Simulated assay, not measured.
Amino acid sequence: MDKMKATYEVMLGLAAEMVWDEALRKHRSEELYREIDRALATGDESAFRNLTDELRLLN
């Protein structure tokens, strides 16, 4: 029974980590879209390229 409980706790921890990772990825993606919009509005081509590269890697 203890082995099942330990396994369950490990699985629960992994599930929590997956949820956390997805939340961080989503948050960074939203930040990148805002920064890309800003770069486009100001005509900053270098920032635009760097940000879109990071967004591409993130997805």
Results as ranks from 00 to 15, higher is better:
Leu57Gly: 06
Thr42Ala: 10
Met11Ala: 10
Thr52Leu: 05
Leu14Phe: 03
Gly43Ala: 02
Ala41Thr: 00
Arg25Ser: 02
Lys5Asn: 08
Leu40Tyr: 12
Leu58Tyr: 11
Leu14Cys: 07
Arg49Cys: 04
Leu51Cys: 04
Arg25Lys: 07
Leu40Asn: 05
Asp21Phe: 06
Asp37Ile: 04
Glu17Gly: 07
Asp44Ile: 04
Gly43Ile: 02
Ala6Arg: 14
Arg25Asp: 01
Met4Gln: 15
Asp44Gln: 13
Tyr8Met: 10
Ala23Leu: 07
Asn50Val: 09
Met11Gly: 03
Glu35Phe: 05
Ile36Val: 06
Tyr8Phe: 15
Glu31Lys: 09
Tyr33Gln: 12
Met4Asp: 15
Tyr33Phe: 07
Met11Ser: 10
Ser46Gly: 07
Glu22Tyr: 01
Arg49Met: 13
Asp2Trp: 15
Met1Lys: 11
Asp53Ser: 12
Ala23Cys: 05
Arg25Trp: 00
Tyr33Trp: 08
Leu57Trp: 13
Tyr33Asn: 14
Arg28Trp: 01
Tyr33Lys: 11
Glu45Met: 14
Arg34Phe: 01
Trp20Gln: 13
Asp37Ala: 07
Ala47Arg: 15
Leu57Gln: 15
Glu30Ile: 08
Arg49Trp: 14
Leu12Gly: 06
Glu30Arg: 08
Leu58Phe: 05
Lys5Asp: 09
Leu57Asp: 14
Leu58Gly: 05
Leu51Arg: 04
Met18Cys: 11
Gly13Arg: 09
Glu22Met: 02
Leu57Cys: 10
Arg25Thr: 12
Gly43Phe: 01
Asp37Gly: 11
Leu57Glu: 15
Arg28Asp: 04
Asp44Trp: 10
Phe48Glu: 08
Phe48Gln: 03
Asp21Thr: 02
Ala15Gln: 12
Phe48Tyr: 07
Glu54Gly: 00
